[in-house]
Write a protein that binds this DNA or RNA. Structure first.
Lengths: 104, 104
DNA sequence: GTGACAGGCAAGCGTTGACTTGCCTATGGT
DNA sequence: ACCATAGGCAAGTCAACGCTTGCCTGTCAC
């Protein structure tokens, strides 16, 4: 299975996820069109296709075929591993007092 | 400012964050030692140093100098942008009914 | 059937990224 | 002063990544 973090590393892939939030179950050509319109992205169809492969390998996108169309559905559940791995936001800490400190 | 997502893309950098959760305010050599011990990572000091630069540029790590030591503190607040960008976990959806669908 | 449309496969290219190597600065101990 | 420690700088190597190009497969409409 692919790496969720690496899948999120590319800005274009993140924008694709944004578009799938806006409208779920889009086809490849639909996604290409919206990336070109709403964001100024002039990427090729194959480029987007490969990005979708990465997203699918990471479990962030599921696909289903119907006739000659292939619909892409968003699945954000893999994102929970990020929120659960590190304790989020104790806030930018007060750097004067509460840090653990010993001479190495 | 650096990209938080790209900073998280590398497994070694994620492990460094894990170690900083375990013990905050470590020096470069401390981190190197722990990466070698607890995880089987045989990376060079410079490699880890460059990783820390990336993490610092992403705002995930803050540094403070004291004498010849440089301590590294974790700051997980940049991670909130991930949790807030996409609606997390509607769960793997039932693929038969509730998806939006129109012929393109 | 023919042609337009939606998508897939694979080789190739350019760039970025992770890592090493070698040397240099600076602080602290004795 | 001397030397070991903690860290920094810069060039260079090698693999992974993003993207393009070209062609091929499958589906629907007419």
């Amino acid at each position: 299975m692919g790496d969720v973090f690496k899948a999120l590393a590319d800005p274009t892939r993140r924008t694709i996820l944004d578009e799938l939030v806006d409208r779920n179950g889009q086809t490849l050509f639909e996604i290409c069109a919206r990336l070109a319109m709403k964001h100024g992205l002039s990427s090729t169809r194959q480029a987007i296709s490969q990005h979708l492969d990465v997203l699918e390998a990471a479990g962030l996108v599921t696909t289903r075929r119907e006739g000659r169309y292939k619909f892409h559905d968003l699945d954000t559940s893999p994102l929970t591993v990020i929120a659960e791995r590190w304790p989020i936001d104790r806030g930018p800490s007060d750097t004067t007092t509460e840090t653990t400190e010993t001479e190495p």
